[in-house]
Amino acid sequence: MKDFITAKQEFDKLVEESLKKYKPKVPVVFTKLSEVTKAITSNMIIWSRKNSLWPLQFGLACCAMELLDFGASRIDAERKGFLVFRATPRQSDVMISAGWITKSMAPEVKRLYEQMSRPRYVVAYGECSVSGGPWYESYNIIEGIDQIVPVDVYVSGCPPRPESLFDALLKLQEKVGGKIDN
């Protein structure tokens, strides 16, 4: 019962705030209905989209062990909204790419990215996705995932601790909400 009460209070606060911006100086209200609903719903849409980003299960190599730790019970991913790791790209928002990319795997990554529905975001997790990692002289490695898909947040480390993945996803939430420029 507690959750129900606080969500309703938040909804009331949002309605009041959005109505305040459109108060004219004359004590008579002349607005279009579409502008009122747009003001209410755009804030609602951004708030709900920000707090429920569902990741795609894309752990390729050793950084996948830290992704499993990120979803397990000590460092909980559920408390901030990353509820389920979906297996199909049509139902997910964020692609967390963990592991190195070889030449055989590159067309599959591109195909998976194009199957995700908009708005979609990409997080590059670990040194091998950022810049190729320790395999820089190898004949079968692509250096960094940003040669194939556009990336929003980079996390460096080998492997980075799961707490730093949490920090990166909080920054992604700010970017979705519109506070950080670009």
Binding site: A61, S104, W135, S138, Y139, N140
Partner: peptide, 14 residues
Amino acid sequence: VGFLHRGVEKLAEN
């Protein structure tokens, strides 16, 4: 197989 092949035996010679 071969989606994760990076040639460790060749890299170890350098």
